[in-house]
Design a protein around this nucleic acid. Structure first.
Lengths: 214, 214
DNA sequence: GTCTATAAACTGATAGAC
DNA sequence: GTCTATCAGTTTATAGAC
């Protein structure tokens, strides 16, 4: 792996472990066993590193946008998407632990973040519309945007919520599953008779996975 | 006002304006026109200031816990509570902009925060149970805890969500109202025929308030 | 590409005079 | 209670040698 890539990977690991704020460029260099000068040869500054990390995150996200496979069950497609989404949030959770702060210090990053958010809102609306057209849920069209926002808030802030609700703030694998369950919970009250069963089955599956992983 | 109080109030204002991270004890002293030494006479360190601010926040919150006035409409009691809750979140929004980070640096603060959270979860459950017993909503008892968590996430992260969804991150008064609307939206799919009307009436009221305040 | 050395700026914090 | 003076430590960032 190139030094540049090593710096990015080590930064992500340290940021997730100790928080972005607590980690200086010196820490990153020391962890890698390289000099601070070398780090600054590869990156203009810490902001620059954060921007590269965000680009990586966005790429993961955009290559995993929900597929529209007509032959496959809509619900299982959605759950696959949710699954990879929450895992991604786990991989980059430091970013959401400090979201408002990080974005307020870097105008460029903020603009990139905003562009992605617009995309994600549309994506969430598409998923909800798909569930509606497949008769899984029944929701007024005028409520779709609101529900999409609720899904976004839940996904975005699930990791900081979990971390701040327990004495030892470490995230574990089962937290991903309970995040998926929270989104299913948002859909549940809108479910049709048909959808209710499918959602209940998924809930049971994820609850079992939580128990298994402990 | 005592110097100690002035330091707290100025700190809240500066933290909300520029973010907690960007504001040092030197900044606070300079803004007040006092010396850094004087600030350290009143507070042991920056953590100490944050703990005092949190105590203030908690006191506001606990004196505004939802009243159980049997003679008054349950829904309007709840909305009054939501209203003051979101206003409080606005007054201390810097705290939630950086929640995971701030708590990870101060064990004592984290424990105080956790104790409050337990209380708030119970409080949210009580409100939901109240709505159920008044026949405003219809919800399975086993779903109440999940819904309470969703309400908590929504209230806690509403201000950072709004700030990070627009180019200029400043919060305005109407953001409080749309926060209340988001919580009403969470209750809506559970509403009974009777409750649906009451919730719709409130939605209209808050939507009008948003328009008026712009 | 990488290292050493180092500067400039800032932060948190304290001692001692008034 | 408040100020001046000052410290030790940290962070970001660069210049110049290898």
């Amino acid at each position: 792996m190139s030094t540049k890539n090593k710096i990015i990977q080590t930064s992500i690991a340290l940021f997730n472990e100790h928080g972005e704020r607590a980690i200086s460029t010196n820490h990153i260099a020391a962890e890698l066993g390289i000099s601070p000068g070398n780090l600054y040869y590869h990156f203009k500054n810490k902001e620059d590193i954060l921007q590269h990390i965000f680009a990586l995150y966005r790429d993961h996200l955009e290559t995993n946008f929900p597929t529209v496979n007509e032959n496959e069950d809509v619900v299982s497609q959605m759950v696959k998407y949710l699954d990879s989404l929450f895992e991604l949030m786990w991989q980059y959770h430091f970013f959401y632990d400090n979201l408002a702060d990080i974005l307020s210090r870097d105008e460029t990053l903020k603009l990139n973040y905003l562009a992605l958010q617009e995309n994600l809102l549309l994506q969430a609306q598409k998923v909800i519309t798909g569930l509606k057209h497949s008769n899984i849920i029944n929701i007024d069209d005028e409520d779709i945007v609101d529900l999409a926002h609720m899904v976004k808030i839940t996904v975005s802030f699930w990791t900081p919520y979990v971390e701040t609700q327990r004495p030892e703030g470490k995230l574990v694998l089962s937290d991903i599953y309970s995040g998926v369950l929270k989104v299913l919970f948002l859909f549940k009250p809108y479910s049709t008779d048909d959808g209710r069963e499918k959602i209940a089955a998924l809930q049971n599956k994820y609850r079992a996975m939580i128990v298994d992983s402990e």
